[in-house]
Simulated assay, not measured.
Amino acid sequence: MIVEAVMLNVKRGMEDDYEEAFREAAKIISSRKGYISHELQRCLEVKGKYLLLVKWETLDDHTVGFRQSEEYQEWKRQLHHFYDPFPTVEHFEKVPVS
């Protein structure tokens, strides 16, 4: 399992519209092969700042299966105009510590 982590900065004054659009767009991502779960968190200190965490079975499920799909084009259409600056997506894996 990998975790996709994205710090999102939504344009000022568009936060409510973004949250509504994200609820709709979440249907797209949750239907994809390899999707496990996601959560969107709102920053308490900085208005318009969000953290998106998406769990995928494999890195390819996100970078190939989702990012190269037609559904991703719809995801972009629904959400990408809210971001400034455009976010950097990073992927993480669990480190065994015991």
Score class of each variant (00 low, 15 high):
Ile2Val: 14
Ile2Lys: 03
Val3Thr: 14
Val3Ala: 12
Val3Tyr: 11
Val3Cys: 04
Ala5Pro: 00
Ala5Cys: 10
Val6Ala: 08
Leu8Val: 10
Leu8Tyr: 08
Asn9Cys: 12
Val10Phe: 05
Lys11Leu: 10
Lys11Cys: 05
Lys11Asn: 07
Gly13Val: 05
Met14Gln: 14
Met14Pro: 03
Met14Ile: 03
Met14Tyr: 15
Asp16Arg: 09
Asp16Val: 09
Asp17Trp: 00
Asp17Glu: 14
Glu19Ile: 11
Glu19Tyr: 04
Ala21Ser: 10
Phe22Tyr: 14
Arg23Ala: 13
Arg23Ser: 14
Arg23Val: 13
Arg23Met: 10
Glu24Ala: 05
Glu24Gln: 10
Ala25Tyr: 00
Ala25His: 01
Ala26Lys: 09
Ala26Arg: 09
Ile28Met: 01
Ser30Asp: 04
Ser30Glu: 11
Ser31Asn: 12
Arg32Ser: 13
Lys33Thr: 15
Gly34Arg: 03
Tyr35Thr: 04
Ile36Asp: 02
Ser37Lys: 15
Ser37Leu: 07
His38Leu: 09
His38Pro: 03
Leu40Val: 12
Gln41Gly: 02
Gln41Trp: 11
Arg42His: 07
Arg42Ala: 02
Leu44Gln: 04
Glu45Asp: 14
Lys47Arg: 13
Lys47Thr: 14
Lys47Ala: 11
Gly48Trp: 05
Lys49Gly: 00
Tyr50Asp: 06
Leu51Val: 15
Leu51Asp: 13
Val54Phe: 03
Trp56Glu: 01
Trp56Ile: 04
Trp56Gly: 01
Glu57Trp: 03
Leu59Asp: 15
Leu59Ala: 15
Asp60Tyr: 07
Asp61Lys: 08
Asp61Cys: 12
Asp61Trp: 07
His62Ser: 06
His62Gly: 06
His62Arg: 08
Thr63Lys: 10
Thr63Trp: 01
Val64His: 02
Gly65His: 04
Phe66Ser: 02
Arg67Lys: 14
Arg67Pro: 01
Gln68Leu: 11
Gln68Ser: 12
Ser69Thr: 10
Ser69Ile: 08
Glu70Trp: 06
Glu70Cys: 05
Tyr72Met: 07
Gln73Phe: 07
Trp75Gln: 06
Trp75Met: 09
Trp75Glu: 09
Lys76His: 12
Lys76Glu: 13
Arg77Pro: 03
Arg77Val: 02
Leu79Ile: 01
Leu79Lys: 04
His80Phe: 15
His81Val: 02
Phe82His: 04
Tyr83Asp: 03
Asp84Leu: 07
Asp84Gln: 11
Pro85Asn: 10
Phe86Trp: 08
Phe86His: 12
Phe86Asn: 07
Pro87Met: 11
Glu90Ile: 09
Glu90Cys: 06
Glu93Tyr: 05
Glu93Val: 02
Glu93Leu: 08
Glu93Met: 12
Lys94Trp: 06
Lys94Glu: 13
Pro96Ile: 03
Pro96Gln: 13
Pro96Tyr: 05
